[in-house]
Design a protein around this nucleic acid. Structure first.
Lengths: 255, 255
DNA sequence: GAAATAGTGTCTATCAGACATTATGGC
DNA sequence: GCCATAATGTCTGATAGACACTATTTC
């Protein structure tokens, strides 16, 4: 049997709005946003890493991130968008898919002290990616199993593992893979994305039936030609805001 | 085409660990944890609310929460557990199910300034609940649709809606409903939990088949007797740490 | 025509929903 | 025996997987 104890901590007393730069009376963690940016490149699921240029973990690979700026960020979401914008520059109106993953915070993960980070995962369409990465500080790295082959700073390896698991899990019953493709794409291309991320071949007929029943794509009139073979029909995603849920997970039995 | 810009914000320079009480050099948000505590009581899905005793939103209902304590909390998770422990007192080793939902943070949600809160949702077994709630400051409130019928402080109505949606969604393809029941329970009881939360009747035969195939329960030897009718077999959940995923969502078609 | 890839048709095993039937307790 | 509820059995429609087959392009 339990007893309710109602001594809820009641935050700060007083009512005045603090100017954004005022340091609050309560000690609070160092707060950042980190991004797990996914793309499918070269038939691989890859993520974008940056090399740290200062201690701690200097010269170690890490997830790209940014410090929450109380002056300019209206919300954690907008901090995430700003961080993403500082990482990639779009020439037109393309916005990658962005979804909050989880918040990690502890005394230990940063040697400088108590730190918290809200992590978002980002899906980037393949045609928006820079073709070469001869930059010194940013790099696309292939995902192998639940992580990457390089050592990561802080607790970022665990974060990557969580993000990969979430991506695979969501692929099982939603449409999010379309965000990894350009606006117009073919069904074999979409199927290939699923196969690469789920790491298993899928039956063509079943896959097309599944997509057709979800009624999430609309046919274009043009055609795409491939290097060889019959050209494939182009499709476009119907509504990027609607959520498609498949009633059954894809190939859950095949595992 | 995009260009990578690699000017990643590189956090604080310097390497020394700050004592926990030191105010960091960067302004940071007021950081709290909030809980959405679910239980099924009186054939209803209910959540636990507290009445605020100070401004802002004095005397308004709100989600129970606590301020992150850098001295005593090792992580956000442990802050959540501490907050829960300050709310309910267990006489033995029962620990409710606790899962991080999402982090909400913005300049607007708290009139005192930039605030962030990591929200957890909690599932409590029905036999651990206090039977009466004649406390002045805590109250169980029935969930109606996506929320509750009382007005909530801050942005808590949106948080409750998200939590309810997550709970319903997880019920569709996982076993988490068992955390709302005592250690030993009958299949009709489990089915009733699903029906109450999903707000739709389920077929008895289909439900039992589904549970049996998931192989998540083990039969006890004793029996439970009800007020009337044939006594029902008691079961116990096999492994609280293993995740059960149903290959199909429950009754997705019936909707 | 051969090769390659896109797209369709068909069969079957499986499973969910519906509903009937049997089982087991209290009164 | 009657009532109430638990538990099981059976039928059917829907669908995913498997795989064969057709279609359309390049060479």
């Amino acid at each position: 049997m339990l007893i309710l104890i109602m001594s809820i901590p009641t935050a700060r007393s007083g009512n005045s709005r603090l100017p954004p730069t005022t340091i609050p009376r309560y000690p609070c963690p160092f707060f950042t946003v980190n991004l797990v940016v996914f793309a499918v490149r070269d038939e691989q699921l890859q993520i974008l890493l940056v090399k740290r240029d200062a201690a701690p973990y200097q010269a170690r690979w890490a997830l790209p991130g940014g410090v929450l700026d109380l002056q300019h960020d209206d919300s954690i979401d907008s901090c995430a968008h700003r961080t993403l914008a500082s990482l990639i520059e779009t020439v037109d109106t393309y916005t990658p898919y962005l979804e909050q993953l989880k918040t990690y915070g502890s005394r230990d993960c940063d040697p400088r002290g108590w730190a918290a980070t809200t992590v978002y995962f980002v899906l980037m369409a393949i045609d928006w990616l820079p073709l070469d990465d001869n930059e010194q500080r940013g790099h696309w790295v292939a995902v192998r199993g639940q992580g990457v082959n390089v050592e990561l700073a802080f607790g970022h390896a665990k974060i990557v593992a969580d993000a990969v698991e979430r991506l695979r899990s969501k692929l099982e019953y939603t449409h999010i893979a379309v965000h990894l493709l350009p606006e117009e794409f073919t069904l074999p291309e979409l199927q290939r994305i699923y196969e690469i991320i789920l790491q298993q071949p899928l039956d063509k007929s079943s896959f097309r039936r599944r997509v057709a029943q979800a009624d999430m794509l609309e046919e274009m009139s043009g055609k795409l030609r491939d290097g060889s073979g019959r050209p494939a029909q182009l499709y476009r995603f119907r509504d990027y805001h609607r959520r498609t849920f498949f009633p059954r997970s894809i190939s859950r039995y095949a595992r």
